[in-house]
Design a protein around this nucleic acid. Structure first.
Lengths: 216, 216
DNA sequence: ATGTCATGTGACAAACTGTCATTATACGCG
DNA sequence: CGCGTATAATGACAGTTTGTCACATGACAT
Protein backbone atom coordinates (compact mmCIF):
# COMPACT_ATOMS: atom_id res chain seq x y z
CA UNK A 1 0.00 0.00 0.00
CA UNK A 2 1.25 3.47 -0.85
CA UNK A 3 2.32 5.53 2.14
CA UNK A 4 0.01 8.30 3.41
CA UNK A 5 2.26 10.95 1.89
CA UNK A 6 1.39 9.69 -1.55
CA UNK A 7 -2.27 10.47 -1.08
CA UNK A 8 -1.51 13.98 0.13
CA UNK A 9 0.38 14.77 -3.02
CA UNK A 10 -0.79 17.47 -5.42
CA UNK A 11 -3.03 15.84 -8.00
CA UNK A 12 -0.86 16.79 -10.91
CA UNK A 13 2.25 15.27 -9.40
CA UNK A 14 0.47 12.11 -8.36
CA UNK A 15 -0.97 11.65 -11.81
CA UNK A 16 2.41 12.17 -13.39
CA UNK A 17 3.86 9.42 -11.24
CA UNK A 18 1.01 7.03 -11.89
CA UNK A 19 1.18 7.64 -15.58
CA UNK A 20 4.91 7.03 -15.66
CA UNK A 21 4.45 3.82 -13.71
CA UNK A 22 1.78 2.54 -16.10
CA UNK A 23 4.08 3.35 -18.99
CA UNK A 24 7.00 1.47 -17.48
CA UNK A 25 4.95 -1.59 -16.59
CA UNK A 26 3.45 -1.51 -20.07
CA UNK A 27 6.89 -1.30 -21.64
CA UNK A 28 8.35 -4.34 -19.91
CA UNK A 29 7.24 -7.07 -17.51
CA UNK A 30 7.23 -6.41 -13.80
CA UNK A 31 10.53 -8.10 -13.10
CA UNK A 32 12.33 -6.01 -15.70
CA UNK A 33 10.63 -2.72 -14.92
CA UNK A 34 12.86 -0.26 -13.08
CA UNK A 35 12.06 2.42 -10.59
CA UNK A 36 14.83 4.46 -12.16
CA UNK A 37 12.84 4.68 -15.37
CA UNK A 38 9.63 5.59 -13.61
CA UNK A 39 11.14 8.46 -11.69
CA UNK A 40 13.05 9.72 -14.69
CA UNK A 41 9.84 9.75 -16.71
CA UNK A 42 7.87 11.38 -13.94
CA UNK A 43 10.62 13.87 -13.17
CA UNK A 44 10.62 12.95 -9.52
CA UNK A 45 13.71 12.50 -7.38
CA UNK A 46 14.65 9.08 -6.20
CA UNK A 47 14.23 9.81 -2.53
CA UNK A 48 10.71 11.06 -3.09
CA UNK A 49 9.62 7.82 -4.67
CA UNK A 50 10.51 5.95 -1.54
CA UNK A 51 8.55 8.46 0.46
CA UNK A 52 5.45 7.39 -1.45
CA UNK A 53 5.94 3.67 -1.99
CA UNK A 54 7.74 0.83 -0.31
CA UNK A 55 9.18 -0.51 -3.51
CA UNK A 56 8.37 -1.62 -7.03
CA UNK A 57 5.88 -4.24 -5.85
CA UNK A 58 4.01 -1.63 -3.88
CA UNK A 59 3.31 0.68 -6.78
CA UNK A 60 2.62 -2.18 -9.17
CA UNK A 61 -0.11 -3.66 -7.03
CA UNK A 62 -1.49 -0.24 -6.38
CA UNK A 63 -2.07 0.12 -10.10
CA UNK A 64 -3.47 -3.37 -10.32
CA UNK A 65 -5.85 -2.69 -7.50
CA UNK A 66 -7.50 0.05 -9.49
CA UNK A 67 -8.46 -2.61 -12.00
CA UNK A 68 -9.42 -5.12 -9.41
CA UNK A 69 -11.96 -2.77 -7.92
CA UNK A 70 -13.47 -2.11 -11.30
CA UNK A 71 -13.77 -5.76 -12.23
CA UNK A 72 -14.99 -6.82 -8.83
CA UNK A 73 -17.95 -4.58 -9.40
CA UNK A 74 -18.67 -6.11 -12.78
CA UNK A 75 -18.57 -9.53 -11.22
CA UNK A 76 -20.95 -8.68 -8.40
CA UNK A 77 -23.42 -7.16 -10.79
CA UNK A 78 -23.34 -10.24 -12.98
CA UNK A 79 -23.82 -12.52 -10.00
CA UNK A 80 -26.83 -10.58 -8.83
CA UNK A 81 -28.33 -10.27 -12.28
CA UNK A 82 -28.19 -14.03 -12.67
CA UNK A 83 -29.59 -14.73 -9.22
CA UNK A 84 -26.46 -16.45 -7.99
CA UNK A 85 -26.03 -18.72 -10.98
CA UNK A 86 -22.23 -18.88 -10.86
CA UNK A 87 -21.58 -20.13 -14.35
CA UNK A 88 -23.98 -17.73 -16.00
CA UNK A 89 -22.43 -14.89 -14.04
CA UNK A 90 -18.90 -15.94 -14.91
CA UNK A 91 -19.76 -16.10 -18.57
CA UNK A 92 -21.12 -12.60 -18.54
CA UNK A 93 -18.28 -11.34 -16.39
CA UNK A 94 -15.59 -12.78 -18.61
CA UNK A 95 -17.00 -11.00 -21.61
CA UNK A 96 -17.42 -7.68 -19.88
CA UNK A 97 -14.01 -7.81 -18.23
CA UNK A 98 -12.30 -8.79 -21.46
CA UNK A 99 -13.75 -5.70 -23.09
CA UNK A 100 -12.33 -3.51 -20.38
CA UNK A 101 -8.91 -5.14 -20.30
CA UNK A 102 -8.38 -5.44 -24.01
CA UNK A 103 -10.01 -2.41 -25.47
CA UNK A 104 -9.17 -0.06 -22.63
CA UNK A 105 -6.23 2.35 -22.68
CA UNK A 106 -3.94 0.16 -20.59
CA UNK A 107 -4.02 -2.95 -22.72
CA UNK A 108 -0.22 -3.15 -22.91
CA UNK A 109 -0.01 -2.96 -19.16
CA UNK A 110 -2.43 -5.84 -18.81
CA UNK A 111 -0.56 -7.80 -21.42
CA UNK A 112 2.45 -7.81 -19.12
CA UNK A 113 0.24 -8.57 -16.16
CA UNK A 114 -1.36 -11.62 -17.69
CA UNK A 115 1.67 -12.90 -19.47
CA UNK A 116 4.01 -12.66 -16.53
CA UNK A 117 1.92 -12.87 -13.39
CA UNK A 118 3.03 -15.80 -11.27
CA UNK A 119 0.84 -18.36 -9.58
CA UNK A 120 1.41 -16.95 -6.15
CA UNK A 121 0.23 -13.53 -7.20
CA UNK A 122 -2.56 -14.93 -9.28
CA UNK A 123 -3.86 -16.82 -6.31
CA UNK A 124 -4.01 -13.83 -4.09
CA UNK A 125 -4.07 -11.09 -6.64
CA UNK A 126 -1.89 -9.13 -4.28
CA UNK A 127 1.72 -9.37 -3.20
CA UNK A 128 2.40 -12.22 -0.86
CA UNK A 129 4.04 -10.17 1.85
CA UNK A 130 1.61 -7.26 1.95
CA UNK A 131 -1.44 -7.53 4.09
CA UNK A 132 -4.33 -7.67 1.67
CA UNK A 133 -7.42 -6.06 3.14
CA UNK A 134 -9.33 -7.14 0.09
CA UNK A 135 -7.90 -10.62 0.07
CA UNK A 136 -10.48 -13.12 -1.02
CA UNK A 137 -12.94 -10.33 -1.52
CA UNK A 138 -14.17 -11.90 -4.73
CA UNK A 139 -14.43 -15.19 -2.97
CA UNK A 140 -16.44 -13.76 -0.10
CA UNK A 141 -18.79 -12.12 -2.53
CA UNK A 142 -19.15 -15.41 -4.31
CA UNK A 143 -19.82 -17.38 -1.17
CA UNK A 144 -22.55 -15.02 -0.07
CA UNK A 145 -24.32 -14.67 -3.39
CA UNK A 146 -24.16 -17.96 -5.22
CA UNK A 147 -26.89 -20.50 -5.58
CA UNK A 148 -25.21 -23.70 -4.48
CA UNK A 149 -28.00 -25.88 -5.76
CA UNK A 150 -26.66 -25.34 -9.23
CA UNK A 151 -23.18 -26.58 -8.32
CA UNK A 152 -21.61 -29.88 -7.44
CA UNK A 153 -19.75 -28.65 -4.39
CA UNK A 154 -19.73 -29.87 -0.85
CA UNK A 155 -18.01 -27.09 1.07
CA UNK A 156 -16.95 -23.48 1.01
CA UNK A 157 -13.46 -24.61 0.27
CA UNK A 158 -14.63 -26.36 -2.84
CA UNK A 159 -16.43 -23.22 -3.95
CA UNK A 160 -13.10 -21.46 -3.62
CA UNK A 161 -11.34 -24.11 -5.66
CA UNK A 162 -13.96 -23.91 -8.35
CA UNK A 163 -13.83 -20.16 -8.41
CA UNK A 164 -10.09 -20.17 -8.85
CA UNK A 165 -10.29 -22.70 -11.60
CA UNK A 166 -12.69 -20.38 -13.39
CA UNK A 167 -10.52 -17.33 -12.83
CA UNK A 168 -7.57 -19.18 -14.23
CA UNK A 169 -9.52 -19.79 -17.40
CA UNK A 170 -9.98 -16.09 -17.65
CA UNK A 171 -6.39 -15.13 -16.95
CA UNK A 172 -4.91 -17.86 -19.06
CA UNK A 173 -7.12 -16.86 -21.97
CA UNK A 174 -6.05 -13.26 -21.73
CA UNK A 175 -2.46 -14.44 -21.56
CA UNK A 176 -3.07 -16.47 -24.68
CA UNK A 177 -4.61 -13.51 -26.45
CA UNK A 178 -1.71 -11.23 -25.63
CA UNK A 179 0.82 -13.89 -26.48
CA UNK A 180 -0.64 -14.22 -29.93
CA UNK A 181 -0.87 -10.50 -30.31
CA UNK A 182 2.82 -10.04 -29.55
CA UNK A 183 3.76 -12.76 -31.98
CA UNK A 184 1.86 -11.11 -34.77
CA UNK A 185 -0.85 -13.74 -34.85
CA UNK A 186 -3.56 -11.60 -33.40
CA UNK A 187 -6.83 -13.31 -32.67
CA UNK A 188 -10.08 -11.42 -32.55
CA UNK A 189 -11.90 -10.43 -29.42
CA UNK A 190 -14.68 -12.75 -30.51
CA UNK A 191 -12.28 -15.67 -30.75
CA UNK A 192 -10.98 -14.89 -27.30
CA UNK A 193 -14.47 -14.89 -25.91
CA UNK A 194 -15.26 -18.15 -27.67
CA UNK A 195 -12.19 -19.69 -26.11
CA UNK A 196 -13.19 -18.62 -22.64
CA UNK A 197 -16.73 -19.86 -23.23
CA UNK A 198 -15.50 -23.26 -24.37
CA UNK A 199 -13.27 -23.72 -21.36
CA UNK A 200 -15.92 -22.51 -18.98
CA UNK A 201 -18.43 -24.84 -20.59
CA UNK A 202 -16.12 -27.76 -19.99
CA UNK A 203 -15.83 -26.82 -16.38
CA UNK A 204 -19.60 -26.58 -16.06
CA UNK A 205 -20.70 -29.63 -18.01
CA UNK A 206 -17.54 -31.68 -18.31
CA UNK A 207 -15.07 -32.30 -21.08
CA UNK A 208 -15.35 -36.03 -20.74
CA UNK A 209 -18.12 -37.97 -22.44
CA UNK A 210 -20.99 -38.43 -19.98
CA UNK A 211 -22.74 -41.67 -19.32
CA UNK A 212 -25.87 -40.81 -21.24
CA UNK A 213 -23.81 -39.69 -24.20
CA UNK A 214 -22.72 -43.28 -24.63
CA UNK A 215 -26.21 -44.38 -25.60
CA UNK A 216 -25.70 -42.90 -29.06
CA UNK B 1 20.37 -24.38 -23.63
CA UNK B 2 23.77 -24.73 -22.02
CA UNK B 3 26.69 -24.12 -24.35
CA UNK B 4 28.68 -27.10 -25.66
CA UNK B 5 31.52 -26.29 -23.29
CA UNK B 6 29.30 -27.12 -20.36
CA UNK B 7 28.83 -30.69 -21.52
CA UNK B 8 32.57 -31.16 -21.98
CA UNK B 9 33.22 -30.24 -18.38
CA UNK B 10 34.69 -32.73 -15.94
CA UNK B 11 31.84 -34.52 -14.21
CA UNK B 12 32.83 -33.34 -10.77
CA UNK B 13 32.89 -29.70 -11.77
CA UNK B 14 29.61 -29.93 -13.65
CA UNK B 15 27.92 -31.58 -10.71
CA UNK B 16 29.22 -28.94 -8.36
CA UNK B 17 27.74 -26.23 -10.52
CA UNK B 18 24.39 -27.98 -10.90
CA UNK B 19 24.19 -28.62 -7.21
CA UNK B 20 24.91 -25.00 -6.39
CA UNK B 21 22.28 -23.88 -8.88
CA UNK B 22 19.65 -26.16 -7.37
CA UNK B 23 20.52 -24.81 -3.96
CA UNK B 24 20.19 -21.20 -5.04
CA UNK B 25 16.90 -21.74 -6.82
CA UNK B 26 15.65 -23.65 -3.81
CA UNK B 27 16.69 -20.83 -1.48
CA UNK B 28 14.84 -18.05 -3.30
CA UNK B 29 12.52 -17.65 -6.27
CA UNK B 30 13.96 -17.37 -9.73
CA UNK B 31 13.73 -13.59 -9.93
CA UNK B 32 15.68 -13.17 -6.71
CA UNK B 33 18.24 -15.86 -7.34
CA UNK B 34 21.66 -14.56 -8.27
CA UNK B 35 24.39 -15.94 -10.41
CA UNK B 36 26.87 -14.48 -7.98
CA UNK B 37 25.64 -16.84 -5.28
CA UNK B 38 25.73 -19.83 -7.55
CA UNK B 39 29.30 -19.31 -8.61
CA UNK B 40 30.44 -18.51 -5.10
CA UNK B 41 28.90 -21.75 -3.88
CA UNK B 42 30.29 -23.76 -6.73
CA UNK B 43 33.69 -22.11 -6.46
CA UNK B 44 33.69 -21.23 -10.12
CA UNK B 45 34.87 -17.92 -11.57
CA UNK B 46 32.35 -15.54 -13.01
CA UNK B 47 33.72 -15.67 -16.53
CA UNK B 48 33.47 -19.44 -16.58
CA UNK B 49 29.79 -19.39 -15.81
CA UNK B 50 29.13 -17.39 -18.92
CA UNK B 51 31.16 -19.87 -20.89
CA UNK B 52 28.67 -22.55 -19.91
CA UNK B 53 25.35 -20.73 -19.85
CA UNK B 54 23.77 -17.74 -21.53
CA UNK B 55 22.32 -16.37 -18.32
CA UNK B 56 20.24 -17.21 -15.27
CA UNK B 57 17.26 -18.26 -17.36
CA UNK B 58 19.41 -20.68 -19.27
CA UNK B 59 20.62 -22.65 -16.28
CA UNK B 60 17.24 -22.52 -14.58
CA UNK B 61 15.42 -24.11 -17.48
CA UNK B 62 18.18 -26.60 -17.88
CA UNK B 63 17.47 -27.82 -14.37
CA UNK B 64 13.75 -27.77 -15.01
CA UNK B 65 14.17 -29.77 -18.17
CA UNK B 66 15.64 -32.63 -16.20
CA UNK B 67 12.34 -32.86 -14.40
CA UNK B 68 10.30 -32.36 -17.51
CA UNK B 69 11.89 -35.35 -19.15
CA UNK B 70 11.21 -37.48 -16.13
CA UNK B 71 7.57 -36.50 -15.86
CA UNK B 72 6.95 -36.68 -19.57
CA UNK B 73 7.83 -40.31 -19.36
CA UNK B 74 5.42 -40.90 -16.51
CA UNK B 75 2.70 -39.24 -18.51
CA UNK B 76 3.29 -41.28 -21.63
CA UNK B 77 3.26 -44.50 -19.67
CA UNK B 78 0.00 -43.57 -18.02
CA UNK B 79 -1.57 -42.67 -21.33
CA UNK B 80 -0.59 -45.98 -22.86
CA UNK B 81 -1.61 -47.99 -19.84
CA UNK B 82 -5.08 -46.47 -20.00
CA UNK B 83 -5.41 -46.93 -23.75
CA UNK B 84 -5.62 -43.24 -24.47
CA UNK B 85 -8.21 -42.43 -21.84
CA UNK B 86 -7.01 -38.91 -21.12
CA UNK B 87 -8.71 -38.36 -17.80
CA UNK B 88 -7.74 -41.72 -16.40
CA UNK B 89 -4.18 -41.11 -17.49
CA UNK B 90 -4.08 -37.63 -16.01
CA UNK B 91 -5.37 -38.90 -12.71
CA UNK B 92 -2.65 -41.50 -12.52
CA UNK B 93 -0.02 -39.09 -13.75
CA UNK B 94 -0.91 -36.40 -11.22
CA UNK B 95 -0.46 -38.82 -8.38
CA UNK B 96 2.79 -40.23 -9.63
CA UNK B 97 4.26 -36.83 -10.46
CA UNK B 98 3.21 -35.38 -7.12
CA UNK B 99 5.16 -38.15 -5.41
CA UNK B 100 8.27 -37.30 -7.35
CA UNK B 101 7.99 -33.53 -6.92
CA UNK B 102 7.05 -33.51 -3.27
CA UNK B 103 8.91 -36.38 -1.76
CA UNK B 104 11.98 -36.10 -3.94
CA UNK B 105 15.18 -34.36 -2.86
CA UNK B 106 14.47 -31.11 -4.70
CA UNK B 107 11.14 -30.28 -3.14
CA UNK B 108 12.24 -26.79 -2.14
CA UNK B 109 13.35 -26.09 -5.67
CA UNK B 110 9.95 -27.14 -6.98
CA UNK B 111 8.24 -25.05 -4.36
CA UNK B 112 9.80 -21.98 -5.91
CA UNK B 113 9.01 -23.25 -9.36
CA UNK B 114 5.34 -23.76 -8.72
CA UNK B 115 4.82 -20.77 -6.51
CA UNK B 116 6.54 -18.29 -8.76
CA UNK B 117 6.35 -19.62 -12.30
CA UNK B 118 4.54 -17.17 -14.51
CA UNK B 119 1.83 -17.93 -17.03
CA UNK B 120 4.08 -17.43 -19.99
CA UNK B 121 6.56 -19.98 -18.73
CA UNK B 122 3.85 -22.29 -17.57
CA UNK B 123 2.33 -22.30 -21.00
CA UNK B 124 5.52 -23.25 -22.73
CA UNK B 125 7.40 -24.79 -19.89
CA UNK B 126 10.46 -23.22 -21.39
CA UNK B 127 11.75 -19.66 -21.63
CA UNK B 128 9.91 -17.57 -24.16
CA UNK B 129 12.96 -16.46 -26.07
CA UNK B 130 14.76 -19.78 -26.32
CA UNK B 131 13.93 -22.10 -29.10
CA UNK B 132 12.27 -25.05 -27.44
CA UNK B 133 12.98 -28.27 -29.31
CA UNK B 134 10.63 -30.04 -26.96
CA UNK B 135 7.96 -27.40 -27.14
CA UNK B 136 4.55 -28.93 -27.07
CA UNK B 137 6.12 -32.32 -26.71
CA UNK B 138 3.56 -33.32 -24.14
CA UNK B 139 0.85 -32.02 -26.39
CA UNK B 140 2.11 -33.97 -29.39
CA UNK B 141 2.23 -37.12 -27.32
CA UNK B 142 -1.29 -36.44 -26.21
CA UNK B 143 -2.60 -35.81 -29.68
CA UNK B 144 -1.17 -39.02 -30.99
CA UNK B 145 -2.20 -41.29 -28.16
CA UNK B 146 -5.57 -40.15 -26.86
CA UNK B 147 -8.90 -41.71 -27.53
CA UNK B 148 -10.97 -38.76 -28.69
CA UNK B 149 -14.22 -40.66 -28.43
CA UNK B 150 -14.04 -40.18 -24.71
CA UNK B 151 -13.76 -36.41 -24.96
CA UNK B 152 -16.01 -33.55 -25.94
CA UNK B 153 -13.56 -31.86 -28.27
CA UNK B 154 -13.87 -30.83 -31.86
CA UNK B 155 -10.30 -30.07 -32.89
CA UNK B 156 -6.66 -30.49 -32.04
CA UNK B 157 -6.63 -27.00 -30.71
CA UNK B 158 -9.34 -27.87 -28.25
CA UNK B 159 -7.37 -30.88 -27.10
CA UNK B 160 -4.53 -28.48 -26.40
CA UNK B 161 -6.78 -26.18 -24.44
CA UNK B 162 -8.13 -29.06 -22.43
CA UNK B 163 -4.68 -30.39 -21.75
CA UNK B 164 -3.51 -27.05 -20.48
CA UNK B 165 -6.51 -26.68 -18.28
CA UNK B 166 -5.62 -30.02 -16.75
CA UNK B 167 -1.98 -29.14 -16.31
CA UNK B 168 -2.94 -25.96 -14.59
CA UNK B 169 -4.90 -27.98 -12.07
CA UNK B 170 -1.74 -29.89 -11.38
CA UNK B 171 0.53 -26.88 -11.09
CA UNK B 172 -1.92 -24.80 -9.13
CA UNK B 173 -2.44 -27.63 -6.68
CA UNK B 174 1.27 -28.01 -6.13
CA UNK B 175 1.48 -24.26 -5.65
CA UNK B 176 -1.28 -24.51 -3.10
CA UNK B 177 0.48 -27.32 -1.30
CA UNK B 178 3.76 -25.43 -1.08
CA UNK B 179 2.02 -22.24 -0.11
CA UNK B 180 0.42 -23.95 2.84
CA UNK B 181 3.65 -25.66 3.73
CA UNK B 182 5.53 -22.37 3.89
CA UNK B 183 2.84 -20.82 6.02
CA UNK B 184 3.06 -23.61 8.52
CA UNK B 185 -0.32 -25.07 7.60
CA UNK B 186 1.00 -28.14 5.91
CA UNK B 187 -1.52 -30.36 4.21
CA UNK B 188 -0.91 -34.02 3.64
CA UNK B 189 0.08 -35.58 0.38
CA UNK B 190 -3.27 -37.39 0.45
CA UNK B 191 -5.13 -34.11 0.77
CA UNK B 192 -3.20 -32.70 -2.13
CA UNK B 193 -4.08 -35.69 -4.26
CA UNK B 194 -7.71 -35.41 -3.25
CA UNK B 195 -7.71 -31.78 -4.31
CA UNK B 196 -6.29 -32.59 -7.69
CA UNK B 197 -8.78 -35.41 -8.12
CA UNK B 198 -11.72 -33.16 -7.27
CA UNK B 199 -10.68 -30.50 -9.72
CA UNK B 200 -9.95 -33.01 -12.43
CA UNK B 201 -13.30 -34.64 -11.80
CA UNK B 202 -15.02 -31.31 -12.29
CA UNK B 203 -13.25 -30.87 -15.57
CA UNK B 204 -14.26 -34.33 -16.69
CA UNK B 205 -17.87 -34.46 -15.55
CA UNK B 206 -18.73 -30.84 -14.86
CA UNK B 207 -19.02 -28.77 -11.72
CA UNK B 208 -22.45 -27.53 -12.68
CA UNK B 209 -25.56 -29.56 -12.00
CA UNK B 210 -26.41 -31.60 -15.09
CA UNK B 211 -29.80 -31.80 -16.71
CA UNK B 212 -30.57 -35.27 -15.47
CA UNK B 213 -29.56 -34.31 -11.95
CA UNK B 214 -32.49 -31.94 -11.88
CA UNK B 215 -34.96 -34.82 -11.94
CA UNK B 216 -34.32 -35.45 -8.24
C1' DA C 1 10.81 35.19 14.43
C1' DT C 2 11.04 30.76 15.86
C1' DG C 3 10.14 25.98 16.49
C1' DT C 4 8.19 21.87 14.67
C1' DC C 5 6.65 18.64 11.66
C1' DA C 6 6.17 16.96 6.95
C1' DT C 7 8.29 16.64 2.67
C1' DG C 8 11.91 17.04 -0.89
C1' DT C 9 16.51 15.77 -2.57
C1' DG C 10 20.49 13.61 -4.56
C1' DA C 11 24.82 11.54 -3.28
C1' DC C 12 26.13 7.06 -1.89
C1' DA C 13 27.15 2.19 -0.68
C1' DA C 14 26.09 -2.28 -1.90
C1' DA C 15 24.83 -5.67 -5.09
C1' DC C 16 24.54 -7.70 -9.42
C1' DT C 17 25.18 -8.48 -14.41
C1' DG C 18 27.59 -9.40 -18.71
C1' DT C 19 32.00 -8.58 -21.19
C1' DC C 20 36.62 -8.83 -22.53
C1' DA C 21 41.53 -8.80 -22.73
C1' DT C 22 44.65 -11.82 -21.01
C1' DT C 23 46.44 -16.15 -19.36
C1' DA C 24 46.47 -21.10 -19.06
C1' DT C 25 45.80 -25.71 -20.84
C1' DA C 26 45.41 -29.46 -24.07
C1' DC C 27 46.35 -31.60 -28.12
C1' DG C 28 48.14 -32.76 -32.78
C1' DC C 29 52.18 -32.92 -35.44
C1' DG C 30 56.84 -32.44 -37.37
C1' DC D 1 60.61 -32.83 -27.56
C1' DG D 2 59.03 -28.23 -29.08
C1' DC D 3 55.76 -25.59 -31.33
C1' DG D 4 51.29 -23.81 -32.88
C1' DT D 5 46.57 -23.62 -32.61
C1' DA D 6 42.14 -24.18 -30.65
C1' DT D 7 39.68 -24.33 -26.49
C1' DA D 8 38.87 -22.96 -21.83
C1' DA D 9 39.67 -20.25 -17.47
C1' DT D 10 39.88 -16.05 -15.15
C1' DG D 11 38.90 -11.81 -12.66
C1' DA D 12 38.94 -6.94 -13.26
C1' DC D 13 35.74 -3.73 -15.02
C1' DA D 14 31.93 -0.76 -16.67
C1' DG D 15 27.29 -0.13 -16.40
C1' DT D 16 22.92 -0.56 -13.80
C1' DT D 17 19.92 -0.77 -10.24
C1' DT D 18 18.26 -0.46 -5.54
C1' DG D 19 17.22 1.43 -0.96
C1' DT D 20 19.03 4.73 2.52
C1' DC D 21 20.29 8.74 4.85
C1' DA D 22 21.86 13.20 6.24
C1' DC D 23 20.54 17.42 5.08
C1' DA D 24 17.64 21.13 2.80
C1' DT D 25 13.30 23.17 2.16
C1' DG D 26 8.69 24.46 3.03
C1' DA D 27 4.33 25.29 5.63
C1' DC D 28 2.23 26.64 9.48
C1' DA D 29 1.18 27.74 14.31
C1' DT D 30 2.46 30.28 18.27
Amino acid sequence: MPKPTFFRLADEKRQRLIKAAYAEFARVPFQTASISNIIRDAGIPRGSFYQYFEDKTDIFFYLLDQTRMQTTLLYEQALKRHNGDLFAALDEFFNAAADVLIEGPDAEFYANVFLYMDFQSATHFSPSDAKPPHKKELLRTTLSLIDRDKLVVSSDEEVGMLFRQAMWIFMQSLGHYYHRLRNGEQISLAQLKARMATMLHWLQFGAGVQKEDLHD
